[in-house]
Amino acid sequence: MDTSLLDIGEVARRSGLAPSALRFYEKKGLIGAAGRNGLRRTYHPDVLERLTLITCARSAGLSVAEISRFLVARPSDADLRVRMAAKADGLDEQIGRLTRLRDSLRHAAVCDHEPIVDCPDFKRAIGNVPAPATTPGGNSD
């Protein structure tokens, strides 16, 4: 056996994924085993990079089918490129919402307004209301 190969338990430990997830990803063609050591699957160490990509894509909301298509994509696959650009736009929107939520939670952690959710600064941070207009002298109306 090649000593550089990792058994399924080691890949699971290093990737933070359950062995069942590794077997599922293998069944779906996202990763491939290099062979077996007895009854245990073995993998080349570069499978960890692939699993990092898969885990990131899954956490961003991509389906296994989308990831599968992406992993074999060629520059000539215009339809896939359009779908991936749309997915990236959706992620930009999600990042904006999460950023607003993070900012509002940080404000809420130090806010003295009662109740906190009625605080104008909290509402502005979450994106519920626009910032007050300022006059040319820099003062609020």
Rank of each mutant, 00 (worst) to 15 (best):
R81D: 05
A34E: 11
D92W: 04
V11T: 03
I54S: 00
L101R: 15
G9D: 11
V64I: 15
D79V: 12
T99W: 13
G137F: 11
F122G: 09
M84F: 14
A34G: 03
L98I: 11
E26D: 14
A88E: 07
I8M: 08
A33L: 05
V82M: 12
E66L: 08
E49L: 15
C56D: 05
A78E: 06
G16R: 08
L6G: 05
N128P: 00
Y43T: 04
E66A: 13
I54K: 00
G38P: 00
D89M: 07
M84H: 03
R69E: 14
D118Y: 00
S140H: 09
G137P: 05
I126Y: 13
D7I: 01
R97T: 10
S15E: 04
D92R: 14
T134M: 12
P130N: 11
R83M: 08
R100H: 09
A18M: 02
A85E: 15
S104F: 02
R13M: 03
L39M: 11
N139A: 14
G16C: 06
I67W: 00
R14M: 12
G35N: 09
I8P: 05
E26S: 04
I126W: 06
I67L: 00
R124D: 08
R83E: 14
R102D: 10
R23I: 10
D7H: 08
R41F: 01
L101A: 15
F70C: 07
K27I: 02
S59M: 05
P132A: 10
R41G: 01
R74K: 13
E66I: 03
V129M: 03
L71N: 05
G138Q: 10
A131N: 03
D118I: 01
G138D: 09
F70N: 02
A57G: 02
V117H: 13
L17S: 06
D2I: 02
P115D: 01
R13Y: 04
A34F: 13
Y43L: 06
I31L: 07
V110R: 15
L98F: 11
I54E: 00
I8T: 10
C56A: 13
T3P: 09
S76I: 07
S104R: 02
R58S: 00
P19R: 12
Y25P: 05
S59T: 05
L17C: 03
N128L: 14
A108K: 06
D103N: 12
D7R: 11
P115I: 08
S63F: 01
H107I: 06
N37E: 15
G127H: 11
V72Q: 14
Y43A: 02
V72E: 11
S15G: 09
S15N: 04
E93W: 07
H107R: 08
G61P: 04
F122R: 12
A33I: 07
S104I: 03
R41I: 00
M84T: 10
K27D: 14
A78T: 09
E26W: 08
R83Y: 01
L6F: 13
A85S: 14
T55R: 12
P45Q: 09
A12C: 01
A12Q: 07
A88I: 12
R50C: 00
A33M: 01
V117N: 09
F24Q: 13
L91F: 07
G16P: 06
I8F: 03
S140Q: 13
P115M: 01
Q94Y: 01
L101K: 15
A131Q: 09
R40N: 08
R106Q: 10
D103R: 11
L71W: 06
E93H: 15
A125R: 12
